[in-house]
Amino acid sequence: MKESVKRTTALMKYLPLILLVVVSLFFGILYPRFFSIKNVLNLIRQMSFLMIVSMGMTFIILMGSIDASVGANATFCGVIGALLAPYLGGGAIIIGILAGAGVGALNGTIVTKVKVPSFLVTLSLMGALDGAALLLMHSSPVNISNQTFLDFSNGSLLFSLPNVDLIPIIMIAVCYFVINKTAFGRSLYAIGGNEQATFYSGIRVRQIQIIAFMISGIMAGVAGCLQASMFEAACPYMGDALMMNSIAAVVIGGTQLSGGVGGPLRTVFGVVLIAIIGSGMNFMGVEPATRHIVTGAIMILAVSVNIDRSKMAYVK
């Protein structure tokens, strides 16, 4: 009995990987060009924003919270970066990312100090940030011509690998290290697992929550500036799709919304799966309607094979 449970858990562990291979093979056989180096780079390029934001989201969901403001935050930071680019050049990116951290800190503070559930706080702030971004850009795209700012995505710091492909990889490495190798990371799991007990065990839960929200904000800031740099402009609502997709990516990867179970590498799978399916459907020229249905079905399928029910007391 125990053995079989173990075996299924082992199988569960590799299911996202299997799903990924099956989906990739499907598109690969259908379109030989799908796995050309050019398209793999294109894929990485297209998933980079989602990857970065989802990394940040992983921190939040591990704690059992949620951050619905990431998409609007990305737009907001992108606008700030774009507006400052003519004056500060590359420095504008740093300010943009700091703005993201500030929004994250605001989220975290309201959640922990004012004690409003994170879902509501971030959902409300999403609207406020969209409004603020629109006000800042006068409702019209802010074009960027500063070369340093544009190099943020198209330049290359390392082995002629474009930054837009390099940055997500750095982010994955950093997040992996922080979540798995530091006390901060362990306390995220502890908070997600049993917040009350963690509180009494002496971990400074509130501080950790605020920092986690700031990390999520920083990631949104990086993604927003990267997006602005890549489109050569900060556009209204450009980050909107990131919110739902990043939550979906984290959950499809197998990190549970109730918190305490999962991790950044699982999120990588989730993002790659979403990106491959999205790009594959573009290749096939799938109708938007079918696209919606496929996305929904894949989400249910991935979560139902991925979820570890033994660690859940009951399903809400």
Binding site: S36, M230, C235, N282
Partner: peptide
């Protein structure tokens, strides 16, 4: 603009 960009990027590959 962003959707126009990503659709075109996929087309260019294809």
């Amino acid at each position: 603009r962003d959707k126009g960009y990503s659709v075109t990027a996929d087309w260019i590959i294809k």
